[in-house]
Design a protein around this nucleic acid. Sequence first.
DNA 1: CTTTGTGCAAACGATTTGCAGGATG
DNA 2: CATCCTGCAAATCGTTTGCACAAAG
Lengths: 137, 137
Amino acid sequence: MTQSVDTIIKTLRSKGLKVTPQRFAVYANLLSRQDHPTAEQILQDLNKQAPTSSQATVYSALQALRDVGLVREVLLEEGVSRYDANVEKHHHFYCRQCNAIEDIPWETFPDISLDHLRPGLKAQTYEVTVYGTCDCC
Amino acid sequence: MTQSVDTIIKTLRSKGLKVTPQRFAVYANLLSRQDHPTAEQILQDLNKQAPTSSQATVYSALQALRDVGLVREVLLEEGVSRYDANVEKHHHFYCRQCNAIEDIPWETFPDISLDHLRPGLKAQTYEVTVYGTCDCC
DNA sequence: CTTTGTGCAAACGATTTGCAGGATG
DNA sequence: CATCCTGCAAATCGTTTGCACAAAG
């Protein structure tokens, strides 16, 4: 999942986004982690050593990345958006104990047929969310 | 899904909740609708004719109902919690156009085996979320 | 009567916005 | 050099809380 600086820059440019240190940092940070951090956590992480980004900038970077489809928003915890740089089809596991979110590979479950939905609903995609507890809990 | 006044009162009592007009109204309102309203929408609805409940009361009623398992919180829209009086196992359809949320009966999809999750994850339940557009969109 | 619920207004936390400077393509 | 981005502070929105009063069991 970790990519070279050049690749990241090319990806951002290919989506028409100007490459700034802050935006690069947000996206690179997200690509480098396997958890699903909140905007606040990313901000903390980026400013751990030295201040590099402001709050508003992190929020707007995430918005831009989401708008161009490089980042997905995950709504599983009350009150906060969490972010995921994995935009391939996949499912999620949510730990009710520690609120950890983990990706589940798409192939883990057999494909579900959406043919039996009530007529009138036009389905585009689906995903499975599994609730439980993880190792550390 | 609509139940008699008596049944609703008995249900609330059976969960150890004091039956007040406001709490009754919130629960009855939720039972009577098939959409998945926000706290704000319930408040509006209840106070449409005449003011019956305050904002804080609706929020605390929803909290109480959720705590005893009579109501489920649905997190599919950014920034808001929506509520569902259907606490049976079921799936959800989310309309990306109008943000409508609709229940999908559990039997619509074949049961998924959770046996192939990475070892270490203890699954309790799962649910499928289908994204698409609905009739009116 | 004791406990729990209600209502108001103020407090809160996550996210957004307005606007003046700065950096990018 | 025109456009888009950054940072700050103030604003907004959903939700929670403190506290005095009222109602339920």
